[in-house]
Design a protein around this nucleic acid. Structure first.
Lengths: 224, 224
DNA sequence: ATCTGTGAAAAGATTCACAGCC
DNA sequence: GGCTGTGAATCTTTTCACAGAT
């Protein structure tokens, strides 16, 4: 455990936007570890983990090495133990409260989704401007008026928000969230949000994902 | 002398899963170009495009250079022209038909979403196993029985599918789609799909995205 | 024998800097 | 003046290969 604190002094200039590739894969490792744990598996090797994710054993080891030493030579990784380490890295070892902003059909679908809780996220609140939606419940959450949003953030009822409002409202609501002290925003609106330093944004534009799919499908068919 | 033939399929050019970073950014460039076009803008420089996307002018030019020469020195890029070039790269210069598999709350939300068409995707069909859903319409699409799926793919009614079924059904439905000749799958199920060579899969796991957000939020707060 | 962790090499992506065009 | 396209330099990520632990 002689991990020197001097990992990379000048590396702290991390541009907001996307986490490094290793971190993206870490989520997939964790997801697979949870499946393995459910099936009663006790250990797994980097080779097996890599195979399940169409990557290599070396890639798996290097990715993990960036965060610590979690394995045992000759044995592999203890499934439950590694999963817990990864949750700690993501900050989901304890449940995090999340708000859904916008109770349109996408917001409703998210609110109804069981499965976030198992991953360490509790959908703790929902907000909408539409008076006909305020007071209704989706999943286990009752929709509140958007005018209650700022005080709910300030009261620390959640630190992350899922933004599922129309594109026309997205930046405005974002500004409100940021002023109130939100820590991160999962953005479903198809627009690049502007936020102050220190606030995380992860974009999820479904049309963009389809476009990417279209590209990959085309390239697979053309260079084969 | 007979050189030993490469039976090792090592040279597959494109790893399935994620497109290169440049292609991911291309989607964002296109999205911004469409906004510019709507606002009547005729030209844009790599500097302006980069600024709008928190990247650099050099990055924008290099990304585009990978696919051709689209700009004019001293002028920049013609907005409409560059947008059309990018659509061609993505294969969305002509409308592509897409099916939604699974008419649960997420599937319904997607079917109700206006906005895919503007991006070149027509939601042309929907399928579910639940008899109480078959025959109902969401958006403009009527849900069909899952038993009609294979023949619809074979008839060429769509070449891409959005998979929004429960995790337990995901691989089974995927096998069906692949056998029927689908070209690509946008996968919302939180599991790694196994598909034959030549079929594209782009994963969209919303819990994973939240996890990534949690990581970025934590890292922004710890090294500031 | 199996498997991790890690330097070193290779490949890939980003940034720099500038020649040449408008 | 402003701007693109591109080689060269730099930085990051992936792959290789093996010493050493179990």
């Amino acid at each position: 455990m002689a991990s020197s604190p001097r990992t990379d002094g000048r590396n702290s200039r991390r541009r907001k936007g996307s986490p490094p590739p290793a971190v993206r894969r870490l989520s997939l490792y964790l997801r697979h570890l949870e499946q393995l744990a459910d099936s009663g598996r006790a250990t797994v090797s980097s080779r097996q983990l890599g195979e399940a994710l169409s990557t290599t054993d070396a890639q798996v080891r290097k990715d993990l090495a960036h965060f610590g030493q979690f394995g045992r030579p000759g044995v592999g990784y203890y499934v439950a133990e590694l999963a817990e380490h990864l949750r700690k890295i993501f900050g989901t070892d304890e449940v995090r409260n999340v708000a859904v902003i916008g109770a349109g059909s996408l917001g409703q679908a998210l609110l109804g989704h069981k499965g976030f809780l198992k991953k360490g996220f509790r959908l703790a609140a929902a907000f909408d401007t539409d008076p006909s939606k305020v007071g209704k419940s989706f999943g286990t959450v009752r929709v509140q008026s958007m005018s209650d949003l700022a005080s709910a953030v300030q009261a620390g009822r959640f630190s992350l928000a899922i933004l599922a409002v129309p594109i026309t409202a997205a930046q405005e609501v974002t500004d409100l969230l940021c002023r109130a002290g939100i820590r991160g925003i999962l953005n479903f609106a198809p627009v690049q949000l502007t936020v102050p330093e220190g606030i995380a944004v992860v974009p999820v534009d479904l049309a963009v994902q389809l476009e990417q799919l279209s590209y990959v499908a085309a390239s697979l068919n053309s260079n084969k």
